[in-house]
Design a protein around this nucleic acid. Structure first.
Lengths: 203, 203, 203, 203
DNA sequence: GATGAATGAGATTTCATTCAT
DNA sequence: AATGAATGAAATCTCATTCAT
């Protein structure tokens, strides 16, 4: 596993960036040739770096998982019960910024499986922490948080192209649903999706 | 637009049912030949009924939109403020039962546009009704409800194959987030997604 | 395993014939597109009949093996000790006429394995018969006959394009080598390869 | 045509040796990259020494032809009529030891054409010598000997990987076929191909 | 001179769509 | 009208050859 030559490493990065762009714009069905062109390299270079289209997608997924892991670790350092909320927003930002393979991100695949496990554990710990601090009702489970993420993915998947921050307000509402019974709901600070945008999305 | 002969109409229905099954099982990338086989007809018949694969998908989308419209109209007849909640659950059931083209359902397309408009209006009315009855906080907008639906779509898309009812609990949490500040949160009656299922999905 | 429609069966035959021609002329490395064009059909038709290039080659090999089996059975009906000689010449003719996949014909592959077994057995029986009739020396084994065939394959492979009958005289010499010690050698009735042809082959 | 620097000459030899190995193991379709790796050099070095894959193969062919020429000259020094037999066995040994490009060895190509001519002439002379000594029947021609060689090539090509000496017994039989009518056949001293090996080859 | 990354034409294979039977 | 075979453009992937380091 020797390190890549500098030019090779550059091409690898350009390919990943191009793939992110192309797949985000045209979906994972976009041809690899388009990716290669967007990266400014030939087909052969793409296939030298990534032995198959799947491997290219996997690399994107893996990168994203690792970035999420970084965020999860950062969130774990907070000790005031705000880590869960912080991580959910941070994960949303990351996913909204890199929507190329959202559909594969949380689907079974063998890329960086330890990262997934650790992220899941981090969410569980942060949930417990939040519940200890009384900001989340006690009957919420770890898998409820998982669903929160998948819910956000669904929103970004639908609205991302037109209203890339619409998910934030939805997350606020979700978090309001998680608060303990007695605790008063905070006001919604994020703006709602504009009706015009909603109409543009749905047709 | 003369009516179809009876056998032709039968073929049409069988094709739609087969498409629903096949696309739900293998995604929209599944081949049209598989659909024709599942319907027990030849390719020529499929293309006589639907001039393109896209037209077939559009027909599924249109049907679903019309069914949702039916539900929306039913919900509108409720006058006790419960219509919004009822419609959201009913729409979830429908979407979980027919996950073939969820991703296209709420994307721009010219199939049954009046239905979409009317559904959107129905949600707006039901929201106003709920707010009038004090079951939803007043700063929730109509597009917030739209996002609730897309959120549920995201959940079903991810969990549907393994845990087809997992979305219900999430919707309960979401609805809890919509409740006015003073109103105490109800207990969660739907079961949470099992950790085993979550692990099976994510890998 | 329903029978093919007439037109489909025709196309199948034309593809096999075209493949025989193209592979014989340009080797197995020839592109499948060339085969399709030679058959006068589109690529899709080729791949509808044969799911891969390998399957196409296998079909050729299988056909040839079955034809050889027919010959072997015919040879077995002779009871005057001449069956071995007859079969060797007949197999030579067949192989010289269809040199497309000689190299795969006798290599391990799972096409019609029973045919191979039966052919091998036929040769063994014919050898024993010839030895009983005193036309082949007793220390010749069944695998010696196998090598005779592979030897002929080598000749056809090299000379087939220029001198498609050159193998015959070589087979006469080989058979002379198999005769019992006392038996006088017959005259060579087949013409020798012309020096000009040999020079043309070797360069 | 200045001589190569010592290290360059070394690289050339290592490339030829590697090509012999790789092509023998995986056929001439093996990639040039594999050859370069086996030789422990980079692609650029390979292409500096040999301007194309064909040139590399040609070099192997040329070497083999020159080695055969050496053998032919040695055989010519024998004056007891045994030269032909000796050369055929020696050529067989050489070809069995270097089976990388047997199929090209006797095909038209412009590498070392004088060697080919001289080898052919040597065989013709040795044949005449053998006939003069009465060890080969008079109606055998020079091209018959050529076919003997190609026959051996066919055997090695098929059996070489499993039974690298199987060709010897076949050559004995062939030589028996060449002996004059009156001369008694010698016993076969080489072992026959085992049935197990034959089965392993054919499948 | 040596290296190995980059190139891109060409190979195999798929599949939405058309058309002869 | 129904069938399913035929079509061919487009996708993924390979590899002999070139070229920047």
């Amino acid at each position: 596993m020797k390190p890549l030559r500098r030019d090779a490493a550059e091409n690898r990065e350009r390919l990943l960036a191009a793939a992110n762009q192309v797949f985000a714009d045209h979906g994972l069905d976009a041809g690899v040739e388009e990716v290669a062109q967007a990266a400014g390299v030939g087909m052969g270079t793409l296939y030298r770096r990534f032995p198959s289209k799947q491997a290219l997608i996997d690399a994107l997924v893996g990168n994203l998982r690792l970035e999420l892991l970084e965020l999860a670790r950062s969130a774990g350092e907070r000790e005031d019960g705000s880590g869960l909320r912080w991580l959910l927003f941070a994960a949303g930002e990351l996913q909204a910024a890199q929507p190329a393979c959202l559909q594969r991100l949380w689907r079974h695949s063998d890329v960086e499986p330890e990262a997934v496990t650790e992220i899941r554990q981090a969410f569980a710990d942060l949930l417990a922490d939040a519940q200890r601090h009384g900001t989340v009702r006690p009957d919420v489970t770890s898998t409820d948080i998982t669903l929160v993420i998948w819910s956000i993915v669904g929103i970004i998947d639908t609205t991302g192209a037109v209203a890339p921050t619409a998910w934030r307000r939805h997350l606020e509402l979700l978090l309001a649903g998680l608060r303990p019974s007695g605790q008063p709901a905070a006001g919604l600070t994020e703006p709602a999706l504009s009706p015009a945008a909603a109409a543009a999305i749905t047709g």
